[in-house]
Design a protein around this nucleic acid. Structure first.
Lengths: 259, 259
DNA sequence: CAAGCTTGAAATGGATACAGTTTTCGCGGA
DNA sequence: TCCGCGAAAACTGTATCCATTTCAAGCTTG
């Protein structure tokens, strides 16, 4: 399949905006979006986030270059940038979508549990009336989605809710670190997407956090966030257990191998 | 100055080992240490950690390539990898060593205070007799350096001490995150290197931590690390205050600009 | 029939070449 | 002396080419 860079608005323009926002937030880093390298990078990153390639899928620079209609060099550099940020694994022969082990996921949850409760507490300090209203709106969307058993919509609402309180955190470094982990773990989303129990857990978490944010009770926010993450972690491992019977690897992506 | 990759054992072979250890620890990532790109990357990262280039210093791929005696390509890729991990800033024209504002440094300290006490506590659980002995040795080096008012040696001992307990942390993600922050802010070391008071603070911190590690008392380790970081932060801002009279930017690196 | 070696294709890493763009520096005029 | 202005140099981004490495399949041999 040919992936054009100029057209395909949903593919490329959306990512540009996100990149702009992010880099402007961090330290005014000079964005150079017009280079083929950056475009391929952004496109691939978006496709990786959507789990378009399953774990273990191999990405070869010549193939990527052919897909985007460029020479090998921009494709190579985009792949290397993705690898250096952990979105891809560099093997002896090419790049591969990393297969997160259960242990790896546990480690990531451990780090997130150190960061996110504190970040949420900071957000609770900073949220204004408008922010709280937006959080309520996202919560209502989540309720609606849960009532309709719409896993997709619930995930969207969850992501929106998360983005809203993260916007109120006044430590860009902290936000950046948290988001870097979020991007790595679509694995969790995919594994737990289909479970009805997960949807309940997510809605419960959003409800509890929403209430805590509304009262601006920092301790409650901290506790709520921690409980939410514990529940999510337990849910993930329960899903893995149910699906694979306790295998170590967390497969289940879209296209497997294919090479 | 010409930076050879094959010779210059202190510069390059040591870094190879570190890179090998690190990448092997993370996720079995395929290390390809023989590539020029990786070698330049590791060497530059080491030099950045040692604050060989001051804030704002511009690194141009042609210059780096000439320094290492390679073509532009490996240098370019190493620089881009460093930039994508935050060790360098990509400007509209080349790469520059980031200049952290006081606010930025405060933010980074806030994140580190969330991560490092927990990480040190985990290390305390895992350290074996050999690790404790190595920590004692590093502490003795720090004592020696402090007695001689040798700021350079104290910095080395401090880096060694940190590396040792980080090696005992069994969560590679956590280690990776901590290291990314640590390497970013050599600024702190530069600004505070010359103060005698800072040297005392550093030695005190190492002493306290060393004692806490020796007893494997997790709570003491956590508290010691937090106190150490608070002291370091206070010391940094005191140094900035004393030096520049409260300027926002934290200059004072080795070579400034130079282009 | 199996195990090891050989050979070939594919893929990566590095070097060189080239085009486009920005910056800077020197010069001339007001 | 200061302000344009133009040319040259520098820097980046991309393409193409070559060398080296690695994986795999097939063949040979015990």
């Amino acid at each position: 399949m040919r992936h054009d860079l100029a057209n395909s608005s949903d593919e490329w323009t959306g990512v540009t905006d996100e990149a702009k926002t992010r880099s402007a937030k961090v330290a005014g880093a000079g964005m150079v979006p017009s280079s083929l390298r950056s475009q391929i990078y952004a496109s691939l990153r978006r496709r990786l986030q959507r789990a378009e390639f399953g774990p273990g899928y191999r990405l070869v620079d010549t193939d990527v270059a052919a897909q985007y209609g460029t020479s090998r060099m921009p494709a190579r550099e985009a792949l290397m940038a993705l690898a250096s940020q952990g979105f891809l694994q560099q093997t002896t022969r090419g790049f591969a979508v990393p297969e997160h082990s259960s242990h790896d996921i546990r480690d990531i949850f451990a780090v997130r549990k150190l960061l996110e409760p504190e970040a949420a507490a900071a957000a609770a300090r900073n949220l204004d009336a408008g922010g709280l209203a937006a959080l309520r709106a996202a919560r209502d969307l989540a309720r609606e989605a849960c009532r309709n058993d719409d896993a997709e919509a619930l995930m969207e609402a969850n992501i929106a809710f998360r983005g809203l309180w993260l916007d109120a955190v006044n430590n860009p470094r902290l936000v950046e670190t948290i988001e870097s982990f979020r991007d790595h773990i679509q694995t969790v989303r995919i594994a737990t997407l289909r479970r009805a129990a997960t949807r309940v857990v997510v809605l419960d978490g959003i409800e509890a956090l929403s209430a805590a944010f509304a009262t601006r009770n920092e301790a409650a926010v901290r506790a709520g966030m921690l409980a939410f993450m514990d529940a999510a972690e337990a849910e993930f491992f329960a899903a893995v257990e149910a699906e694979t019977g306790g295998e170590a690897k967390t497969g289940g992506g879209a296209e497997e191998g294919e090479r």
